[in-house]
Design a protein around this nucleic acid. Structure first.
Lengths: 243, 243
DNA sequence: GCTCGAACTTGAACATGTTCAAGTTAATAA
DNA sequence: TTATTAACTTGAACATGTTCAAGTTCGAGC
């Protein structure tokens, strides 16, 4: 028995290991068919109820097959996550090119998140918890999922940049990351939301986006100057320490 | 193959089932010895690296033994969580009876959280992710862990109540829950903190507790009245909808 | 002291994520 | 055409959390 704090058979080894993309036509098609099977099954049954054996079955490959292309089951979820991000980005394109009001842009963007994710609502809980795990490759503060997180943050940067709101530069710098974090909070709320049509979440989104925009505009008040400076420099320190 | 979104062998059944407390001396001692073994092992090796077989071994019972007293491995963590809560409550007793300044009470309380949890820092990540899982019995928004969460919220109510700060009643009502949520955020930051002596977390605590107290005192400003009302009624609606 | 049954204990069996040594395929070089 | 070899595929084997039918213990009631 190992006493060194590591299990003798640490099953997470593969999770850190990079896997080269397919090198042949056959490989490409195998990867695609496995991924599609996984995406479908996650949506049909949820994360935990989807077994690697079921994925292999539906993809028409053998059990070990997926592991040639994806280091772990979690990595398959990462692709799932990327997929919904692309749906979301696509969905808000018209809004972002038409609307200039910051509150409306923000509201529309966050509403689009939960609307895009609605088909996966039943599944979302277990995925979220995997995402929250600091040692998971899906953790947005960690390594593997970092690029995807940066894409989402960039999307919120675009929400802010394309608006006609005049925002002090120190706030504008931190706002996208803050909004991403805020979106995570909304998603967590949405997971617990059992109201019909997820109306409660939509209400909370409307109310909070409005509040955020109002708070940003209030931040210039003399009484708030001090706190604002402190908040922003704290956030900056945290972000920099993280990188 | 089941297509109904439930795995044919749902292994979470036991997790919801209540288990009666031991009825005999032998049962009591078995439960205690299993729990102690689990607590020790979690601390030594972490959550994932601790196997049910190892717990059974150290406790001197057979593999299935634990399942007579704890419905799942996660329920053993719940006890672990309760244990640290008790350590924490004990640790801040002197502070709460001596100090009256709100900022100092809050700072001391939150500092005590991370100091109490320090021995489990390496383990905390996997535990946190279990806690975040909406379908886990450990989830504080869910069922089983609710009483424990209420205890922690009550502790923050005491932090506020025992201070000499004069806080508007509508804020005072929501503050304990907010502070509990804030503490969760700090813990999540702390999990990622690799600075020596966890100094960065302590700095963030000092800065943020100060900011919170300052914000509370600013909330009476006329310009902030509107936002404050909206924030508080939103929070109230959320809390009530949750229950 | 004896019996009965609830409380407790056991460990084989199961489903699952992951590993890996061995096998198969097919594109390129000769 | 044939040989070479990297890419790809396979499925048995492993460790693990959990279940459960079958056994054991021991105190209450006679």
């Amino acid at each position: 028995m190992a006493i060194d704090g590591q299990s003798p058979t640490r099953t997470r080894a593969g999770a850190r290991q990079l896997i080269a993309p397919p090198k042949t036509k056959r490989g490409e098609s195998s990867r695609a068919v496995i991924l599609q099977a996984a995406l479908d099954l996650f949506q049909e049954r949820g994360y935990e109820a989807t077994t690697m054996r079921a994925i292999a079955d539906r993809a028409g490959v053998s059990l070990g097959g997926s592991y040639h292309y994806f280091p772990s089951k979690e990595h398959l979820v990462l692709e799932f996550y990327r997929h919904t991000h692309e749906l979301h980005a696509q969905a808000i394109k018209p809004l972002l090119s038409r609307e200039r009001d910051l509150a409306a842009r923000l509201r529309g963007t966050v509403r689009a998140v939960v609307i895009t994710c609605e088909p996966f609502h039943a599944v979302a809980g277990s995925i979220f918890s995997t995402v929250a795990n600091p040692s998971s490759p899906l953790n947005p503060f960690g390594g593997t999922a970092r690029p995807l997180r940066d894409e989402v943050v960039a999307l919120y940067a675009e929400v802010v940049r394309g608006s006609d709101a005049r925002i002090p530069s120190d706030i504008a710098e931190m706002l996208p990351l803050t909004l991403w974090l805020y979106q995570m909070g909304i998603l967590y709320f949405w997971i617990f939301d059992r109201s019909p049509g997820r109306l409660r979440t939509l209400e909370v989104i409307d109310e909070t986006t409005d509040l955020i925009v109002r708070l940003v505009s209030l931040a210039n008040l003399p009484v708030l100057r001090g706190s604002r400076k402190r908040v922003l420099s704290l956030m900056k320190a945290i972000v920099e320490g993280q990188a």
